[in-house]
């Protein structure tokens, strides 16, 4: 493999009918790392992942995936990568076992009967093997899809919003599994919209409207945003939020239940702006830490202009 990197691409660009969906994406993912891929809807995450596993041909750029060229050696990449699509893409009118068996045959696996049995066992679906995949609930579909893309023992997993629409318990189980896989040395690139999931990744990349805006560990991304945040508790928070929005130095005012988060990119300006409000008796202001969500929304707001 290339110097311990499972993915090393630079300048990947993809256009659809003239519109650049991904702009010069440069990405390095170390082996055994859980790499979070974040960004708003339509930001080019899926397109990027599809380019990495050979489903789309980049218009520009070059790089390797598991040491194979992403443009010329897609067949080798397909054989060694597990790709879990955003939408359930197994056959709904095949049973669980039939689906797994089909996938195993697509990869020309030896001893596929045992592999399928083991997968069913691990999934805990051994007693429901003949149930049609289409009749499974969202959480089970997701587990089945993960099992299917793990079947051929890939070195790299590309997961495109694997937990969308899945309940918290199933999500937590899912992430346990992802960490166990990473501990075995499998590299995982996962796209998500959930901040708690982003915090579980070793590395993050934030992509918006085709551009890579931030990357690093969750802590680095947070610090890099340079965002200062205050939290406010008390009465009439809704009215306060309306007053604060649009004032100099305030970029975000977000209610979290009974707490209001007020953030700004310039700590001093922010402090000066909120000073008169802090004197009001009915609310309590405390300096707090910006969350990843604050950081990302800030990143998103600051780039929206170049998009439209």
């Amino acid at each position: 493999m290339s110097n311990g990197y499972a993915i090393a691409v630079e300048g990947l660009t993809k256009r659809f009918s003239g519109r650049e969906v991904v702009k010069r994406l440069t990405l390095e993912v170390r082996e055994g790392e859980i790499f979070g891929f974040l960004g708003p809807n339509g930001s080019g995450k899926t397109t990027s992942i599809r380019m990495l596993c050979g489903l789309l041909t980049p218009d520009e750029g070059r790089g390797t995936c598991l040491g194979y060229d992403v443009i010329r050696e897609t067949a080798d990449i397909k054989r060694r990568v597990g790709y879990m699509t955003q939408r359930f893409s197994l056959y709904e009118d095949l049973s669980i076992r039939e689906n797994l068996d089909f996938v195993a045959r697509m990869y020309g696996m030896r001893g596929r009967r045992t592999a399928v049995e083991n997968a069913l066992e691990r999934l805990g679906l051994a007693n429901r093997r003949e149930q049609l995949a289409g009749t499974l609930s969202g959480g089970w579909k997701q587990r089945l899809a993960l099992a299917a893309c793990m079947l051929h023992e890939p070195r790299l997993l590309l997961l495109d919003e694997p937990t969308a629409g899945v309940d918290p318990k199933a999500r937590r189980d899912f992430w346990e599994q992802i960490h166990a896989l990473a501990a075995e040395g499998i590299t995982v690139l996962v796209s998500t919209h959930y901040m708690d999931e982003a915090e579980r990744c070793h590395q993050l990349a934030y992509i918006a409207y085709g551009n890579l805006l931030a990357r690093g560990t969750p802590q680095e991304v947070l610090e890099g945003s340079g965002l200062a945040t205050w939290s406010v508790e008390g009465e009439d928070l809704y009215e306060l939020a309306a007053e604060l929005r649009g004032l100099a130095g305030i970029t975000q005012v977000v209610p979290f239940g009974n707490i209001l988060h007020v953030s700004g990119a310039d700590p001093e300006l922010l402090e000066a702006t909120i000073a008169p409000f802090r004197k009001q008796a009915q609310r309590r202001w405390t300096p707090s830490e910006a969350s990843l969500e604050d950081a990302f929304i800030h990143l998103m707001d600051s780039t929206r202009d170049n998009y439209q």
């Binding site: 054989r79 699509t85 056959y91 697509m106 990869y107």
Partner: peptide
């Protein structure tokens, strides 16, 4: 239409 093509294309078939 059903989206199964994407998974099929991701395999070596």
């Amino acid at each position: 239409e059903r989206g199964t093509m994407e998974h099929l294309l991701a395999t070596p078939v």
